[in-house]
Amino acid sequence: MSRHRDSRWIYAGSIALALVLSLVPLPVSMGPLKPFWLGIVVIYWALEAPERMGLGRAFLLGIAGDLLTGGLLGEQSLRLVAIAFIVLRLRSRMRFFPMPQQALAVAALLMNDRLLLLMLRAFAGEAHAGWTWWVSPLVGMLAWPWLFLGLDLLRSRLRPREA
């Protein structure tokens, strides 16, 4: 079943890339623009291949992300589980949204995630960062179509070759 293995590579590769992208340094002024790459990848796989992105996977992925960024352990887990749950619930609708609408839905998901993170940080007693806090979901929205089409293209490329 090399087809399956190939698409598994895409799965693993997309996650690895998201982890790396979340660490890649940007110029200081552009730091707040960095989208929540892990969240976006979780949205994609929960949408396209839910058998691969259950709540458990999302949780583990979050732990990996937290260990990597040295943040509070469990923080990204909670965020990713919340994202995965919402996507899996709305999946049947979201899959058939036209692209702009889907991008908007992604922005809403990421915005919700920002709100959740703000609550978590407030519990930990950290100050609020100001308006730049809310910019990253918009960048995520802009990145979504490219990521979606790119990964879809990669996966469909592999299909006929192996058929």
Binding site: P50, G54, L55, F59, L73, L78, F85, L88
Partner: peptide, 21 residues
């Protein structure tokens, strides 16, 4: 039928994340 993303699972995972945090 879609497996393992019932509300019960959600609550369990959120609780686990909370405990870890």
């Amino acid at each position: 039928a879609e497996p393992s993303h019932g509300t019960l699972h959600l609550v369990a995972y959120l609780a686990l994340a909370g405990v870890v945090m």
